[in-house]
Amino acid sequence: MKELKFAARQTLPVLCGYIFLGIAFGLLLQQAGYGWGWALLSSALIYAGSMQFVLVQLLGGGFGSLVSVALTTLSVNSRHLFYGLSFLEEFAHMGGARPYMIFSLTDETYSLLCGVRVPPALDRKRTFLCISALDQCYWVTGSLLGNVLGSVLPFDMTGIDFAMTALFVVIFIEQWLSAATHAPALLGLGFGLLSLLVFGPDAFLLPALVCTVLALGLLRGRIGPAVDPPAKEADAP
């Protein structure tokens, strides 16, 4: 299948990141006393990297009530609220795959789907589905590997997860080079750094996103004309 081959190449950086972050998660889970079933269950059903690291702390009931578990999850994952907005139309055409596409929209999958240029010879929907499904396969595989093999893994791959940072930098540059206006990128960068200084590394993400969305909203009159499609052609791919 040409789409799968293309998706495999596109997802290679996420493979590096997810396998090794997954191993770290699986290992942590194993050290907390939870076997491969738990690794499989959480990576298959939750599928949210940073939240699963928090989950290890929550398991065992040390954290208190299910309500606080729910509130923690909602706040850690609140950034996802904004990701769907970019794919409202695209996913609407994906038929039976739509629920899975929505479920599996992680940071990395979102970035890949935003950045990917599907060759005209390939089926776009199938390519999208392959990218999303492969990413989750990597994550599940990594967490199982870490959980089962754990500390037996002989090689020191510390730092390989920088591949994910590098992926975001590459997609940022690609979007910068092709953008009609740099205002959104600059607003994101500015509010990201500002929020990091004000709120610190553990709490800056949501304020940064909220401020950026507000600023993008207020500046729509200035930015909108550069990015809005010409009237009537909104449906052309």
Binding site: L88, S111, G188, L205, V227
Partner: peptide
């Protein structure tokens, strides 16, 4: 307005994610 946000958010989010990775 929602469609506009969907179009401008990827570039902004990517910048924020880079900051996030380097936080």
């Amino acid at each position: 307005f929602i469609l506009y946000l969907g179009r401008v958010l990827p570039a902004a989010v990517m910048a924020i994610l880079v900051v996030y990775c380097l936080r």
